[in-house]
Each structure stands twice: as C-alpha cells, then as structure tokens.
C-alpha cells in the first residue's frame, strides 16, 4: 500500500517535471522572434542616437561619399514584391478555377502535382536557371542594359510565389465547393457559373490571405533578387532597369564591405523587413480569425 502511494507521488512529480520542460521549450520557440527583434533594435539604436537616421533615410547610396541612403532599396523591395504578386495572383486564381471545376479531373490532379513540385524547388535553382535562360533572352530582345533587371526578378519571383497563392485559394475553394456543389447541380447552374457567382464571392477571406502571403513571400526573398535583379542601388525608371532590394542589400553589404559604417544600414534594413513581414502576418491572422461568412 505504502509502495503504491510512493509510486503515485513519483509519477505526479515526473508529470510536472515533463510539463515544465515542455512549457520551457514552447517559451523558447516563442521568444526567438522577440530576441531577433530586440537584437535588431539594439543595433539600430546607436544610429538614431547619433542622428544618422536622416542620412540612412535618403535616396543616395554612396558609401565612399559618406551617403548611406537605403530608400532606393526599400522602393526596390516594394516594387518587386508588388509586381510579382500582381503577376502571380491572376495566374494563381486562374489555376485554382481550372483545378476546381473547369478542367478535366485527371488534368486537374496533374496540375496540383506540378504545383506541389514547384513548392519544393530550391530558390537558388530558380535563380540559377533564370540567370542563364531568362536574362540572356531579355538582353537580346530588348537591348536595354544587361538583362539583369526588375523585370527578370519579377518573372522569376512570380513563379516562386505562385504555388503559395494557388494552395491557399485552393484550400478555401475546396471547403466552399463541397458545400454548394450539389445545390448548384440541383439548380442547373454550370460549374463556371457556380464558381464565378456563388463560390468566389464567398471565398473573400482566402482570396485576401493568398495575396498577403504571396506578397510576404516575395518581399522576403533574397536569392532571386540578388541573382537576377542587377543590384544597382537606384530608383528604377523602367521595368528593364536594374534594382536592389533590402534583402539583397543586406547580403551584399555583409559580403563585400568591411567598413563598419555601412553595417548600420544593415540593421535598419532588417528592422524594416521584420516590421513589414510582421504586419503582413498579423493581417493574415486577423483575417483568418474573423468569424462569419468565409
């Protein structure tokens, strides 16, 4: 009897110990984000304290002349992410409609497999193929610059974010579709009509979330823009101009400059990126959390 109580006591003790360890792991995983943010702020503070913020928030990147403006890179990131999302979104929506009800079922399954395949392609491989296939083609076709351009990066990123957009919209359409398909058939409405007038208007949540996720993915990419956008720190005047994104800027400064003065621009760039991607993620969560009509 005494032995049994003892056993129960030790089991209880072990149980609490394990719960404590799991709690601890959960806390670490959650605190990583905070730690990253704190580090970036910690390294950005001296800039503000010294009054260099205006220098960094300017339009000229000429390290030798003491000008460290990162606004061209911020614009570059924004333009590139927006253009890639704008190109990928209609494509993704079209593919989802095809998979969902317009195309043949066997073809639709094949298309989904291809989309899955696209998610597993390493970014650097997209960049590589783009640099030796797309860039030379652009150079020959347009005779404007080297081909390393906003346009080249935009096309490559479109391919990169497309599966993200497709999978989010597809998941939502599948949920809604199973509810309304039978009703639509009973009413004698064609699949295209059902999709266009019944399902898509209900799918607004997934449609917005897909756009936001695609944008976040495009904004966060480093390798594609580093490999094919040309990396000139300037505001582009044409889509065939070279641009530099914030992410590529971070990689380039760490790789090439040993000057600690240029390091400051790193942390501010990082802070801007983290802030924007956090805002994008928070909006996705807010949209997903809203109850009511899907």
């Amino acid at each position: 009897m005494r032995n049994l109580t003892h056993n129960r006591e030790s089991r209880k003790w072990l149980e609490s110990l394990i719960e404590l360890m799991l709690l601890f792991s959960g806390l670490i995983s959650s605190l990583v984000m905070l730690a990253i943010f704190v580090f970036l702020v910690y390294f950005t503070m001296p800039i503000i304290a010294r009054g260099d913020l205006l220098n960094l928030m300017s339009w000229n990147w000429r390290p030798l002349a003491g000008q460290y403006g990162i606004l061209p890179m911020a614009i570059g990131s924004l333009f590139l992410a927006v253009s890639a999302t704008l190109a990928a979104y209609p494509l993704g929506l079209g593919i989802c409609c095809f998979i969902h009800s317009l195309g043949l079922r066997s073809v639709a399954r094949f298309v989904l497999v291809i989309i899955d395949f696209m998610t597993s392609v390493p970014t650097v491989v997209y960049g590589f193929v783009s640099a030796f296939l797309l860039v030379p083609t652009l150079r020959q076709c347009f005779e404007h610059g080297t081909g390393f351009s906003w346009f080249a990066a935009s096309v490559t990123l479109t391919v990169l974010v497309l599966p993200t957009i497709v999978l989010v919209i597809h998941t939502q359409l599948r949920q809604l579709g199973s509810e309304s398909r039978l009703t639509a058939i009973a009413l004698g409405i064609s699949p295209a009509q059902t999709l266009l007038w019944v399902i898509l208007p209900q799918a607004s949540r997934g449609l917005v979330a897909a756009a936001l996720l695609g944008f976040g993915r495009a904004l966060g990419d480093t390798i594609v823009s580093l490999m094919v956008a040309g990396n000139a720190p300037q505001v582009p005047h044409s889509i065939l101009d070279s641009i530099r994104t914030l992410t590529a800027h971070i990689a380039l400064v760490v790789a090439t400059d040993v000057h600690s003065a240029t390091y400051h621009s790193l942390f501010l760039s990082g802070l801007i990126l983290v802030t924007i991607s956090a805002m994008v993620n928070a909006s996705i969560r807010w949209i997903a959390g809203k109850s009511g009509a899907g």
Partner: peptide
Amino acid sequence: LSFAVDLLAGTPSIIMGLF
C-alpha cells in the same frame, strides 16, 4: 505563443542570417 511562432515562420530567411 502561437502568434510568435507564426511570425517567426513568416520572417524572411535573411533575417535569421542577420541575427
């Protein structure tokens, strides 16, 4: 806590490098 993990999942990978 899940929100913090979600944010981490959405953070650009170069930020981990910068960290």
